[in-house]
């Protein structure tokens, strides 16, 4: 497979890989590195790539595993210190008012979720994967996926309701 061919195969879903990585690793730099790593890994086995019937699902699974490994590894110990692209809770009132900006709120709520729910929510609500695709990716039973998804969505709702009724959380 030629380089351009490979890029054409990869292009439609490389953003999805990146977003999944970012969901898990939070830091933009970490997510970029992870995505690059995955793409290079894919490239290194591009001869066998035609054998996989669904390259995208394969790449997504790779990304998931890679990021989870990364989180588990010791390097991830200082990961929280690395990322700078989200506002921390310790900002001034002015900043908090700005953080009223729903985006950073949602970001923070999503970050609090367990990894599994994070991933499922990402796959379903952001990337709109079908349930059977998610089952395959997550290596989970359909009912388990539904339960986890429902739980994740309800947690988000709860957090939002809290914020909604108290004004500034």
């Amino acid at each position: 497979m030629k380089q351009t061919e490979f890029l054409n195969v990869v292009l439609p879903f490389q953003d999805k890989l990146y977003r999944l990585a970012k969901r898990l690793l939070v830091s933009r730099e970490e997510a970029e590195d992870a995505t690059q790593e995955i793409l290079l890994k894919l490239w290194s086995k591009n001869e066998s790539m035609s054998k996989y019937k669904n390259v995208e699902a394969f790449a997504m699974t790779m990304t998931k595993n890679f990021c989870l490994d990364r989180l588990k590894s010791k390097q991830a110990g200082n990961l929280k210190l690395v990322h700078s692209n989200y506002t921390d809770g310790n900002t001034s009132l002015q900043k908090q008012l700005e953080a009223e900006d729903s985006v950073s709120w949602m970001e923070r709520i999503m970050e609090e979720l367990p990894e599994q729910q994070k991933m499922i929510l990402q796959l379903r609500d952001v990337e709109q994967y079908e349930f059977d695709e998610i089952c395959e990716l997550m290596d989970m039973k359909p009912t388990a996926v539904r339960v986890a998804l429902s739980r994740a969505r309800k947690t988000v709702r709860e957090e939002l309701t809290k914020k909604h009724s108290y004004g500034i959380g």
Binding site: D15, R157, H164
Partner: peptide, 28 residues
């Protein structure tokens, strides 16, 4: 109204793009 941020966030999160170029070496 309270659900608005949730769905807007999801729509927005999908817009994020991977911009770093991939250094593919002509290893072939």
């Amino acid at each position: 109204e309270q659900y608005k941020p949730m769905f807007n966030y999801f729509s927005m999160a999908k817009e994020e793009k991977y911009t770093k170029p991939v250094p593919l070496k002509p290893r072939v």
